[in-house]
Design a protein around this nucleic acid. Structure first.
Length: 135
DNA sequence: GCCAACGTTGGC
DNA sequence: GCCAACGTTGGC
């Protein structure tokens, strides 16, 4: 099992929206690095859900329900989407600030490259985030 | 809302 | 193929 983190602006599509919908196609990624990460996802992989712009915290966990397929919202270009389903809301949200305060997360792409919207999370960092989340 | 950082585009 | 200009992202 691999671990990932995706970012979404909560006023565009929040984790609560995903919970409400039960499943969503993760479309609209237009960055090659992020796209390549989408393509590496496997069914059952865990996906941390981060609220960017507003909130600035990890709020929930989703799961990959379907591996990469052509992004139906892309009019041109070679872009991919995956399907995500919600797993659960975290007991406690994990703020970007708290991640930045812990040197263990210095290598996390969220900290190092704040513009990447789909990124891998090392297993040990995922476990550490789970601890911070009271899971 | 500002603006730094990053990615992309396009003229040369 | 370089690099300046432009557009976008996202923390602050």
């Amino acid at each position: 099992m691999q671990y990932w983190l995706v970012k979404s602006e909560p006023f565009e599509y929040s984790f609560a929206d995903l919970v409400r919908d039960g499943r969503t196609a993760w479309t609209g990624v237009r960055n090659y690095q992020a796209r390549n990460n989408l393509r590496r996802m496997k069914v059952g992989d865990r996906v941390l859900y981060y609220h960017s712009r507003k909130g600035l915290e990890i709020v929930g966990i989703a799961e990959v329900a379907e591996t990469a397929f052509p992004d139906p919202t892309a009019e041109k270009g070679d872009w991919s989407a995956v399907s995500l389903i919600p797993l659960r809301v975290l007991n406690q949200t994990v703020s970007l600030q708290s991640l930045k305060q812990d040197p263990a997360f210095a290598e996390l792409a969220l900290v190092r490259n704040p513009r990447l919207s789909v990124m891998p999370v090392a297993a040990e960092l995922y476990e550490r985030i789970m601890l911070l989340a009271g899971e």
